[in-house]
Each structure stands twice: as structure tokens, then as C-alpha cells.
Amino acid sequence: MASEGTPRYTVPGLTVQGAGTVVELLQQRLHSLNDLHLTLKHVHWNVVGPHFIAVHEMLDPQVDRIRDMADDVAERLAALGGIAHGTPGSLVEERTWEDYSVGRADAIAHLGALDLVYNGVLQDLRAAIKTVGDIDPATEDLLIEQLRDLEKFQWFVRAHLETAGGTLTTAHATTETEAAQQSIDQ
């Protein structure tokens, strides 16, 4: 009997074992995207300060696109014969990162923290692309499309954090709270 993570069947031209590897990676991508859209809504609801409206309105299109990305990942996961686990409990139990740590805060502080969030999401996504590229070009294509959009969203965030000299205010931060503090100290 196949484990819950190993599909019993998959798409033509892909082995069940290969599909199992891709399904595992896609499940982490699904968790990452669900967590990211919830984090962005948290920021949307808790941002304050002079840049409030710019950040508040910048985030909703990102949330919408990231929700669409999650749907695409879940559907690909199912097409490969896997089971898309999208419940809050499975996300919290299976994620490999800590929960977003900034509450009500200045817009620039949240953007500093979001820059680090995007760093983590993008690093994990690039690693997943590298792995699936050898197994399934259709999934690789899906993830590359998402990479382009997520990098654009990080660019939107970073545009608020870049100095006139071309450096990021969060360049040396290792935690969200450090990034939030460094971005408002500049």
C-alpha cells in the first residue's frame, strides 16, 4: 500500500517514484504560498504610518496572485496523483519556518520584515525548481512562472527599502525583527 505522500498513479511519462518526489516538493510549496498570502494579509491589516495606504494597497494584488499560485500548485499536485493538504493544521505541522513575528508596525518596518520572508520563499522555490527540473518539466515551468512573479513582488517591497546609494536597509538582517528595526533606523 502506498503511503499518503506517494501517489498510486501519475501522469504518463513520469514514474510513480518521480511523481512522489515532485508531490513532496509541491506540498511544501503549497504550505509556503498559503503561509505567504496569510502573512501578507496580516501585514495589510496591521500596517500603520505615513506609507500606510501605499503598502496597504500594494499587498492585495500580491495576495490575490499568491492565492492563485497556491491553487495552481494544489491542482498540479492532484494531477500527479498526490493529495493537496491545505488545512491550517497541516501547514503549521509541516512547515520548516517560524511564524511571522511582526505585529502592528510602521509600513517600512513591515516591508523590512517582508523582504526576509520573500528571501526564504524564493530560496526554497529555487531549490525546488532545481530538483523538479530533472524529473518533470511541466512542474518546473509552473514554478519558474511563479518565481518571476514572486521576485517582482519582492522588488516592489525592496523599492521602499533601497537607499539613494543603492543599498538595502535590511542588507545585514538575519531575523524579521532585525530587518524591521534596521529599515526604520535608516
Rank of each mutant, 00 (worst) to 15 (best):
L111T: 07
E93K: 14
M69C: 07
L142T: 07
P61H: 01
Y118H: 09
G133D: 06
A84H: 13
I129W: 04
G133V: 03
A109W: 05
R126H: 03
L80P: 05
A84D: 10
L116R: 10
T131L: 07
D68G: 10
A113Y: 04
T139V: 02
P137M: 06
G120Q: 10
A84G: 10
A107S: 15
V63D: 00
P88Q: 06
D124N: 03
L77M: 13
G82E: 15
D106I: 05
L80S: 08
T131S: 07
A107I: 10
D115R: 12
A105K: 09
D141R: 11
A84L: 14
D71G: 06
G81Y: 15
L59M: 01
W97L: 13
E75W: 13
V132E: 05
K130D: 08
P61E: 00
A74K: 13
P61M: 01
R76C: 09
D72F: 12
A138Q: 02
P137H: 04
A78L: 15
H110F: 12
L122F: 04
P61S: 00
Q62Y: 00
V73P: 05
Q123W: 02
V92S: 11
G82H: 15
D72Q: 15
D68Y: 03
I108V: 15
R65S: 04
L91W: 11
A84I: 12
A74C: 12
T87I: 07
E98Q: 15
R126N: 02
R104Y: 11
P137I: 06
D134Q: 02
L125K: 01
G103N: 12
T87F: 03
T87R: 01
D68V: 02
A79D: 15
D141V: 02
V73F: 11
R126A: 02
Q123E: 06
L91K: 09
N119A: 05
L114P: 05
L142I: 06
V63I: 06
A105Q: 06
Q123P: 00
H110Y: 10
W97K: 14
S90G: 02
L122R: 02
V92I: 15
V121E: 10
E93G: 09
I83M: 09
D115T: 13
I129R: 04
D134Y: 03
L114T: 14
V73D: 04
L116W: 09
L122A: 05
V121Y: 11
A84P: 08
E94V: 05
Q62I: 00
A84R: 12
A79K: 14
A128W: 01
G133A: 04
A70L: 07
E93I: 06
L80D: 05
I83R: 10
A113I: 05
E75V: 14
Y100R: 13
Q123R: 03
S101I: 09
R104V: 15
L114S: 08
G81D: 13
S101G: 12
P61R: 00
R126Q: 03
D136F: 06
D136A: 02
V117L: 01
A107E: 07
A79T: 15
H85R: 15
Y100E: 12
G86R: 13
L122D: 06
L122C: 02
D136N: 02
Q62P: 00
V132R: 08
A78R: 15
D72M: 13
I108E: 12
R95E: 11
V132C: 06
R67Y: 04
V63N: 00
L116P: 03
E75F: 13
V102F: 07
T96S: 14
H110C: 09
L91Q: 11
L122T: 07
A127G: 00
T139N: 01
A107Y: 09
V73S: 03
R95Y: 12
